[in-house]
């Protein structure tokens, strides 16, 4: 465990809390893509199947449970509790465009052909593209609430910190996991455009709106 990894995990946790706080406080999930949140719930479900079979540490187990809970509570908020506020007309990204290639790739490029390993690989590939429905929604409506942009910032920061973690681990432990690294790089690239807008607009006190 290194400082990049722990800060990455905390940033990921903060992002999920921010999203829940936004929904809970405003009693609204306007501007949030339910499809992205379903994909994240699917990511955690398929990745953490080893929760009971492979014990790593108390930290690891607790974080997995918290991530799963956050993901499912968020989906529940969007599709049940506050579904009247859900902006379904703008959440129109076609999930099959993500799911079909991701399922195909997880069968083609993985570490071994076992159900848990293929599902783990699926979760890694899916996570790298899961935010696309959310980014698509923002580009469609042309704006995002400031708290939603904070959520996206910390979600992207988590990924960037994981890249630093992998460089560190490669240097110190000679550890590398090429599937995670390639997917992580792809995922981080998707946030670059958003990071630019975040720094040039949101941090200067302006609302994120696209021309």
């Amino acid at each position: 465990m290194n400082v990049f990894r722990i800060l990455g995990d905390l940033s990921h946790l903060l992002a999920m809390f921010l999203l829940l706080v936004k929904i809970w406080r405003s009693k609204s999930c306007a501007g949030i893509s339910g499809k992205s949140q379903i994909l994240f719930a699917l990511v955690f479900t398929t990745r953490y199947l080893d929760l009971f079979s492979n014990f790593i540490s108390i930290y690891n187990t607790v974080m997995k449970v918290v991530f799963l809970l956050c993901a499912y509570v968020t989906v529940y908020m969007i599709y049940w509790k506050f579904r009247k506020t859900f902006d379904i007309e703008n959440d129109t990204f076609r999930l099959e465009f993500l799911l079909v290639p991701v399922i195909g790739l997880s069968f083609l490029v993985n570490y071994s052909y076992t159900p848990t390993e293929v599902l783990w690989t699926f979760s890694i590939y899916l996570e790298s593209v899961a935010i696309l429905p959310q980014l698509f929604m923002i580009s469609k409506t042309g704006e995002a609430e400031t708290i939603t942009t904070h959520y996206l910032f910390f979600l992207g920061l988590y990924r960037a910190l994981y890249l630093a973690n992998w460089i560190w681990r490669y240097q110190t432990e000679n550890f590398y996991d090429q599937i995670s690294v390639v997917s992580g790089v792809v995922q981080t690239i998707f946030y670059c455009d958003f990071f630019y807008l975040y720094v040039t607009k949101v941090l200067k006190g302006k609302k994120l709106s696209l021309p």
Partner: peptide, 10 residues
């Protein structure tokens, strides 16, 4: 050798 299949990251 490190066992990559352990997947110790979140």
């Amino acid at each position: 050798e490190y066992n990559v299949h352990q997947h110790d990251e979140l």
